[in-house]
Simulated assay, not measured.
Amino acid sequence: MTTVESGRRPLGRRRTQEERSATTREKVIQAAIDCIVEEGLHNTTAARIAARSGVTWGAIAHQFGDKDSVLFAVVERNAEMYRGLLDAALKKAGATLPERVETLVDVTWKYINEPAAFAFNELIIHNRASSNAKIIGQQEDLSYKQMSIVWDKFFGEFDLPVPKLETARNFTLATLQGLSLMRLITHRRPTFKRELVALKQSVVQMLASET
Rank of each mutant, 00 (worst) to 15 (best):
A47H: 05
C35I: 01
D66K: 11
E76H: 04
Q63P: 03
D68K: 09
T45K: 02
I49M: 01
N43R: 11
I60E: 01
G58S: 14
D68P: 05
F64V: 09
V74C: 10
D34F: 00
R77P: 03
I49V: 15
T44K: 07
A47W: 04
I36S: 01
H62L: 15
F72A: 07
E76Q: 14
Q63G: 05
A46N: 04
R52S: 07
D66L: 15
H42P: 01
E39M: 12
C35W: 01
D66A: 14
L41P: 02
G58Q: 12
V74Y: 06
A46W: 03
H42N: 13
H62T: 11
A50P: 08
T45D: 04
G40M: 12
T44R: 07
L71I: 09
V70S: 06
G40E: 08
K67E: 10
T44F: 05
I36F: 02
G54D: 04
G54K: 12
D68E: 13
I60P: 05
V37Q: 04
I49S: 00
D34L: 00
I60L: 07
G58E: 14
N43S: 07
A61W: 05
A59V: 12
D34Q: 02
T44Y: 07
F72R: 03
V74I: 06
T56M: 05
L71R: 03
F72W: 04
L41I: 15
E76P: 03
D66H: 13
T44M: 12
G40H: 06
V75Y: 02
R48W: 00
A50I: 05
D68S: 13
R48C: 03
A73D: 14
C35Q: 08
G54I: 03
A50S: 15
T44N: 06
V70P: 11
Q63T: 13
V55Q: 05
W57E: 06
V74G: 03
R52H: 11
C35G: 06
E38P: 04
G54T: 03
V75D: 03
V75N: 02
L41H: 10
Q63H: 14
L41W: 10
A59F: 01
E39A: 10
S69T: 15
H42E: 15
A47N: 08
E76C: 08
D34P: 00
A73K: 05
R52K: 13
L71Q: 11
E39V: 01
V37Y: 08
E39N: 08
V75E: 07
K67G: 13
F64A: 11
A50M: 12
F64G: 11
R77H: 11
R52P: 01
W57G: 01
E38M: 13
I49R: 00
